[in-house]
């Protein structure tokens, strides 16, 4: 005989139903979703993993929290926000997707995003490719020197790092300095010709933030704060986000 006690739980705690209700506008009726489907029609992730935003929202409304947690679809959503744009009730489905990502234990989240976030936490660069501040400074100076010599019309062009009191603080996706350094230059040229007073930071220069996509709030904040602190330390007036 099996002596295990069968425990009957109380009322099922429904995280997602509560979340759905929170993001419904006053008087919003979830049954109205049935006749619209505008979110699914414009979603680039519709049909992937057998899911679309309408189904995702309906699953949340029906309290299918476990199924939502198991589904890979929230990781396929690009959070482009087209669904909010077309929804007559302005339901914030990407916010639900973000919460759904947070349901998984951190170590079970997709390895690519997880690894990129962890890499960004390794040093002050906040680079998802793990590039150290010294390497970034070296690449910028090296490429700048090369272009100043090769193109005399840009001999005066600058690519400052940690310039105090500059007008603009510019960030930069890590891919360019690491794999395609020449791609850094076009923006430098535009800023040079526009006469902009700008600077990179040796800390927080990397613009990508995979910790946001990982739904890791603390790490997301840490990466963003590193950049903001560097910009504030330099007394820069405007932050130019290139991502």
């Amino acid at each position: 005989m099996n002596d295990d006690v069968i425990q009957l739980g109380g009322k099922k705690r429904n995280t997602f139903m509560d979340k759905v209700k929170e993001i419904l506008p006053e008087g919003g009726n979830l049954n109205l979703c049935l006749t619209c489907g505008a979110c699914s029609s414009g979603c680039p992730a519709t049909g992937l993993d057998g899911m679309d935003p309408r189904k995702f929202l309906r699953m949340a409304a029906l309290g299918l929290d476990q199924e939502i947690a198991k589904s890979d679809w929230p990781w396929m959503c690009t959070m482009c926000q087209r669904c909010i744009y077309v929804c007559p009730m302005s339901i914030d489905i990407p916010q639900l997707v973000y919460n759904a990502r947070g349901l998984r234990p951190r170590e079970e989240r997709p390895k690519g995003i997880l690894g990129s976030c962890d890499m960004a936490l390794r040093n002050e660069s906040t680079s998802a490719m793990g590039t150290a501040p010294d390497d970034f400074v070296f690449v910028v100076e090296d490429v700048l020197e090369e272009y100043q010599e090769a193109q005399p019309e840009f001999a005066d062009m600058q690519a400052p790092i940690d310039k105090e009191g500059a007008e603009f603080f510019l960030n930069q996706n890590s891919r360019e300095p690491v794999t395609e350094p020449d791609e850094l230059v076009p923006l430098w040229k535009i800023l040079h010709l526009a006469g902009a007073d700008w600077t990179y930071g040796s800390a927080g220069w990397a613009g990508e933030n995979y910790c946001m996509f990982l739904a890791d709030n603390d790490a997301w904040e840490k990466v963003t704060r590193t950049t903001v602190n560097q910009a504030n330390k330099l007394g820069v007036k405007t932050f130019l986000n290139t991502e």
């Binding site: 506008p25 919003g28 009726n29 109205l32 049935l34 006749t35 619209c36 505008a38 007559p88």
Partner: peptide, 18 residues
């Protein structure tokens, strides 16, 4: 599919569906 529906239109559709 129209993406210009308003909540009022959706409510009218829902009433009609009911």
């Amino acid at each position: 599919m129209s993406i210009c529906l308003t909540v009022k239109e959706l409510e009218a559709r829902w009433e009609k569906a009911l």
